[in-house]
Amino acid sequence: MKVRVWWSYPEVYTRPEDRYEDIELPDDYTEEEIKREVEEVAFERFEYGYKILTEEEK
């Protein structure tokens, strides 16, 4: 099956053709397997990080 994964960057303009990717998945995938694959594709488009704050930084 073919699945279109889309994402948005609310604060940044992105051309419409750069906001989605079509992926091919096996026809017998469950909803859970599809969701896992879709999230992986979408999350590849974002950079993120975190830092645990010390008492002095709070």
Results as ranks from 00 to 15, higher is better:
31 E>S: 08
48 Y>N: 11
10 P>R: 10
49 G>R: 02
28 D>E: 14
12 V>N: 10
18 D>Q: 15
14 T>G: 10
13 Y>Q: 09
8 S>V: 13
24 E>Q: 10
4 R>Y: 00
55 E>P: 04
32 E>M: 04
4 R>L: 08
34 I>G: 01
49 G>W: 07
32 E>A: 13
10 P>Q: 12
48 Y>L: 10
20 Y>F: 13
16 P>G: 03
18 D>K: 14
16 P>R: 03
6 W>F: 08
22 D>R: 02
37 E>S: 12
10 P>N: 11
13 Y>V: 09
54 T>S: 15
20 Y>T: 06
10 P>H: 11
3 V>H: 08
47 E>Y: 01
14 T>S: 13
56 E>M: 00
7 W>A: 07
16 P>D: 04
50 Y>T: 04
3 V>G: 08
56 E>Y: 00
22 D>P: 00
39 E>Q: 12
13 Y>R: 09
57 E>H: 04
43 F>N: 15
54 T>R: 13
57 E>A: 07
50 Y>C: 03
29 Y>V: 06
43 F>H: 11
43 F>G: 01
20 Y>Q: 09
32 E>R: 10
4 R>T: 08
35 K>M: 13
52 I>S: 02
8 S>W: 09
40 E>N: 11
42 A>G: 10
2 K>L: 11
42 A>T: 07
17 E>V: 09
21 E>S: 06
16 P>A: 08
41 V>S: 00
8 S>N: 15
53 L>D: 01
34 I>L: 06
37 E>K: 09
37 E>G: 01
16 P>E: 09
46 F>N: 06
23 I>R: 03
5 V>K: 02
40 E>M: 07
